[in-house]
């Protein structure tokens, strides 16, 4: 018996729902709930993580991210301006830098500055400095490309108008072009901060003291000390979401605002 298109669609929907129910049921039956609640969802044992997760883990994650972002933003702005420069040498340096740091894993950069610098120069940087430099230098490469796109999105007439009023090139850049470019790149820049928040965890490759633990390291430490299996890592993950989801919402808000008006 032939079915109409609408009937076929309804049957297909029933079949999909059926497969889903069967899959979930199979998963529930196959799961060893006792092991799972002991090793993964053992929230009864995570009490000792508080309140230190705020004052060590979360605090350090935020500090490391902030430091990396400051270096990344200033370096990124410099690189973006170099990339748009009329002087070829600046463009080559900026292009080389950006391609290099976007092309290698951030983890390698952390290792280079964490272990390489002491080997090469005999000085041991403070952990915060290692994060600031490593995260910042990688971030600068990505932020540079974002800012370059933003600077180029500001119409040429803006520079012409500013120059016609007697502003020197740098003044037109600082007063007229850069403020508009920042408004344009606010959403992608916020996403950049989200990436940095997560990448700040890479500092785990260095030996840290408890006071230097950021969220991921704090969670890993909980795995070995609390006897609750992976549970502390889930808690750390939840704390990342507490930071990243509001940032993501913020980015969306910036996006809809800039879609409404150019201001």
């Amino acid at each position: 018996m032939a079915m109409t298109a609408r009937q076929r669609a309804r049957v297909s929907l029933y079949v999909q729902a059926g497969i889903f129910v069967v899959a979930v049921a199979a998963l529930i039956l196959a799961t060893d709930w006792k092991t799972l609640t002991t090793n993964v969802f053992n929230f009864g044992k995570i009490g000792p993580m508080f309140p230190d997760i705020f004052f060590s883990g979360l605090k350090n994650t935020l500090i490391y991210t902030f430091l990396g972002f400051i270096v990344g933003l200033s370096g990124g702005l410099l690189l973006a301006l170099m990339k748009l420069s009329s002087f070829p040498l600046y463009r080559w340096i900026a292009t080389g830098y950006i391609e290099f740091f976007r092309g290698i894993p951030a983890l390698l950069v952390f290792i280079a500055f964490g272990y390489g610098v002491p080997l090469a120069f005999g000085v041991q940087w403070n952990v915060a400095v290692v994060v600031m430099v490593s995260l910042g230098m990688v971030a600068a490469a990505y932020i540079a490309e974002t800012l370059r796109a933003g600077l180029q999105a500001v119409p040429k007439g803006q520079t012409e108008a500013a120059r016609s009023l007697g502003m020197p090139q740098w003044r037109a850049m600082v007063t007229i072009v850069i403020p508009q470019a920042f408004r344009i790149v606010l959403p992608p820049l916020t996403n950049e901060v989200i990436l940095l928040t997560k990448d700040s965890s890479l500092i785990y490759v260095l030996g840290l003291t408890a006071a230097q633990y950021e969220l991921t390291k704090f969670g890993r430490d909980g795995i070995s000390s609390l006897g609750a299996g992976l549970t502390p890592l889930l808690v750390a993950g939840a704390f990342y979401l507490v930071v990243t989801i509001p940032l993501s919402l913020l980015a969306r808000k910036f996006e809809s605002r800039s879609a409404r008006t150019k201001r």
Binding site: P155, G157, Q158, S164, Q180, R263
Partner: peptide, 15 residues
Amino acid sequence: RKVGMVFQQFNLFPH
């Protein structure tokens, strides 16, 4: 500074 310029597309500073 001595020469004022008015453009076809106005080019006001939107911010």
